[in-house]
Design a protein around this nucleic acid. Structure first.
Length: 415
RNA sequence: CGAGGUGUAGCUCAGAUGGUAGAGUGCUUGGUUUGGGACCAAGAUGCCGCAGGUUCGAGUCCUGUCACCUCGACCA
């Protein structure tokens, strides 16, 4: 990709209250209205890498990717009883179409039941776990902090269906394991925290919390016993009792509030939705029974936001290699611009994601931009290249510089 | 929905007590530059959020309204 074609412009100034990573985000995020954002090339490419990591991990657990509609008819929401509650709370966007009322989906329990119940009719068809990665729409009462809470956002939502409760619990634990792997692959700390999920119609649920100063959720952590709790839990004495019984060391006094970003949430839904939505299978005794359901979500945009917030310094972003939108950027002075085109072509030929900064700016300003935008490697072709024809490679994270020929360079950046 | 705040150039913002619309940055043209956000010269850019009102005169005062931000309430 050529810098001149990317459609971004960096800025020399930062807004008053902007966090460090916001200077980067301001080059990549356009607010069109409250909670409604456009996203630039670098964020989109990083998000695609995140999606790929999520997808690979889920497929390892035999989860099946599907695509469900975002625009959904009113009737399926009336079946679960959530049309009136959601519409009343004004959280759900609804509109009048040619053939009646529709919503723009805030979540997918209803549609997924409508999607599978014709095919999954026997206990022999179970269990099954299907997921999708797509935009969701919620008319949030209060939007917050760019990627962290917006009205349109990308979510991975997955749903599992089971013949009995034990199997639902087994899958829930498997997904918990899978989520831990996903967030660790993304280089994020995400602590599973017990949550209260009254509206979801289920009881057991855990949120995956990523400690961050910009987080809007507060988590209570006890470093001694290693227990982390949602602050809401304090309002439910029976849950506290249970924790105390299972962990003798646990004490409420030891809990400290830590701000966190909620990256994911998994639920044991039970039979609430399947009972209301006519989600039945035939068991081994030939009798109809509602599915047991689990539901598993990851806020993809939030995850992207958390990665930005947790990987930056005074000079800008530092993309972790696993999600970096491009591996490296080539910067040259005018006298080496022809050579830089060649190097660019060679690196591209090796299928390495590379940016050529072909703008007419000075070398210094290009270096500043490369650091702000966080490319893992910066290839500088200036005076030193003119003399010795060695490529200078600077690692963004460590600042370490080395002088290499093309083969050595490709070896370094392709790991 | 409650409390507070902000709307002025593409962006970040300044414009006490009413009197010709400003800066930095960005943009255009030409030239010199090119190693950690270069310099010189010449330019272009405004319904001062919107609507009323007071006044000879309003970016500035008053009323209304809309948008946005922060905190709270709320939130798979």
């Amino acid at each position: 990709m050529r810098m001149s074609k990317m459609g971004i412009k960096t800025r020399h100034h930062r807004g008053q209250d902007e966090a460090l990573s916001q200077e980067f985000q301001s080059t990549q995020l356009k607010r069109h209205a409250a909670g409604i954002y456009g996203m630039g090339n670098l964020l989109v490419r990083a998000r695609n890498k995140i999606i790929e990591i999520i997808r690979k991990n889920l497929e390892n657990y035999e989860c099946s990717e599907v695509s469900l509609p975002i625009i959904q008819p009113k009737n399926i929401w009336e079946a679960s009883g959530r049309w009136s509650t959601y519409a009343k709370s004004k959280h759900m966007f609804t509109f009048e179409g040619r053939n009646g009322e529709y919503c723009i989906a805030p979540t997918g329990e209803e549609i997924v039941l409508d999607f599978i119940r014709e095919n999954i009719v026997s206990y022999k068809d179970l269990p099954i776990n299907i997921f999708q990665i797509g935009n969701k729409y919620r008319d949030e009462i209060r939007v917050r902090g760019g990627l962290l809470r917006s009205k349109e956002f990308l979510m991975k939502d997955g749903y599992s269906f089971h013949a009995n409760k034990e199997d639902m619990v087994r899958e829930y634990n498997a997904m918990k394991e899978c989520y831990i792997k996903i967030f660790s692959d993304l280089g994020l700390t995400a602590i599973p925290v017990k949550a209260v999920s009254a509206d979801m119609g289920g009881k057991v649920s855990e949120e995956f919390m990523c400690p961050s100063p910009v987080g809007e959720d507060k988590v209570l952590m006890d470093e001694k016993s290693g227990i982390a709790l949602n602050t809401e839990v304090l309002e439910y004495p029976e849950m506290l009792e249970e924790i105390k019984q299972n962990n003798p060391e646990f004490r409420i006094d030891n809990l400290k509030e830590v701000p966190c970003i909620e990256l994911g949430h998994i639920f044991q839904l039970g039979r609430f939705y399947s009972e209301n939505m006519n989600g039945y299978f035939v068991n081994a005794n030939g009798k109809k029974e509602p599915y047991f359901m689990g539901c598993y979500g990851i806020g993809v945009n939030r995850t992207l936001g958390a990665i930005c917030e947790n990987n930056c310094d005074e000079e800008g972003l530092i993309w972790p290699k696993s999600v970096a939108p491009y591996k490296c950027i080539i910067i040259s002075t005018p006298e080496n611009s022809e050579d830089s085109e060649k190097i660019y072509a060679d690196i591209k030929f090796k299928n390495i994601d590379v940016v050529l900064d072909d703008r007419a700016d000075t070398l210094g300003s290009k270096i500043k931009d490369a650091k702000l935008l966080g490319f893992p490697y910066m290839i500088i072709m200036g005076k030193k290249y003119s003399k010795e024809h060695l490529l200078e490679v600077e690692t963004r994270k460590t600042g370490k510089k080395s002088f290499l020929n093309l083969d050595e360079l490709i070896k370094l950046i392709s790991d």
